Amino acid sequence: MPRVRELEVFRLPLPFGRRSESLLVKLTDHGGMTGWGEAISPAPKTWSRLEETLAALLIGVDWEHPDGVASGDSAVDMACWDLWTRMRGVPLAEAIGGTRTSLMATVRLTPDLSVESLVSRVNQQICAGYGHVTLDVRPGWDVEPVRAVRQAYPALTLAVDCGNAYTDLGQLVALDAYGLEVIERPFAATEVYTHAALQDEVAAAVAVEVSSTAELDDYLALRAARVLLLRPSSFVSLSDARRAHDRAAAAGWDIQCAGGQGAGLSRAATVAVASLPGCTLPCDVTQPPKQNQIVTPIVGANAGVVAVPLTQPGLGHDIDETRLRRLARESFHA
């Protein structure tokens, strides 16, 4: 039974924007075992709330399972899972019900200065071993680049991520002519009926991203999509993410796991969730910028394949604490 004797929390700036950061939690039990968790760009009040409440919630308190720690924070939940599974000597993927030993990966390509440059980048990724490519599209950068990539690579498995940027069906229905596998996040998450209308119009599967099972239920009720874009860091706990997986899989949906930012811990948890049996589509854990990575080995794809660490307990990666402390913007210890 875990009993935390000390904890540390770190704020780590990320190279994705001026306000982008990770919040990292380290838990240490009385035997010296540690567990780590990470939240990406947490809410502004999260830091002060954790500083005020985390010690009382965890230090010296016995708990039998991570679900028994009602922190309401994804970083704390992940750290509890990491500690709990390390104490039992089992990998996180196995503990949550994962069955896969390796994962196919998609590579995500952002808009480019020209269509020709984008096609060249697609070629580089195909040569690097990727068989699945996701293009970021936006109004004004959609039909032309997708057409060019499809003409250059007729057999390539291709998806688009719309970043919730569209408001009507027109351009998205036009994209469907180019043999897309998935149209991700076409509209604002609240536009459930618009998603349903699009899914009725296109052969491609519409993918939606939610942060709770209640949101997912709204989409399931209307058959408003056929793919769940499952980002574990968006849920308050890994158990909640697993429940969303179970509901989507039971409804016959495909599932794609995503989590490409951060210092490596959140990405490692994404890989564990992506090993669940219902995660049938290539995962999105594109190789991260190395300057902010604190885990070894770095979590990412090699020739389009991501290994699931099943020979080490917990998240399956070592933490470079010296590097973390050097990069951290702020920290507290209790």
Rank of each mutant, 00 (worst) to 15 (best):
V4S: 03
E6I: 04
L7C: 10
R11D: 15
R19F: 10
K26H: 03
H30T: 12
W36N: 05
G37T: 04
G37L: 07
S41P: 04
P42Y: 13
A43D: 13
T46F: 10
A56Y: 08
D62N: 11
P66T: 00
D67P: 00
A75D: 07
M78S: 09
L83T: 01
P91E: 06
G98R: 09
P111W: 06
P111V: 09
V119C: 04
Q124R: 14
I126S: 04
V133D: 01
T134I: 07
T134A: 10
L135P: 01
D136E: 12
R138F: 05
V143C: 05
V146M: 02
L156I: 05
V173M: 08
D176F: 01
D176W: 03
Y178A: 03
G179Q: 12
L180M: 13
E181I: 00
E191G: 02
H195C: 15
A197Q: 15
V206L: 01
V206G: 00
V206Y: 03
V208W: 01
V208L: 04
S211P: 02
R223D: 06
R226W: 00
S234T: 08
F235K: 01
S237R: 07
L238Y: 03
S239Q: 06
D240W: 00
A241T: 01
A241L: 01
A244W: 09
A251Y: 06
G252E: 02
R267W: 03
T270W: 05
A274G: 08
L276R: 05
P277H: 14
L281W: 07
P289T: 06
G304S: 13
V305Y: 09
A307K: 14
T311F: 02
Q312G: 02
P313G: 09
L315S: 07
L324H: 07
R325L: 05
R329I: 08
E330I: 04
F332W: 15
H333K: 11
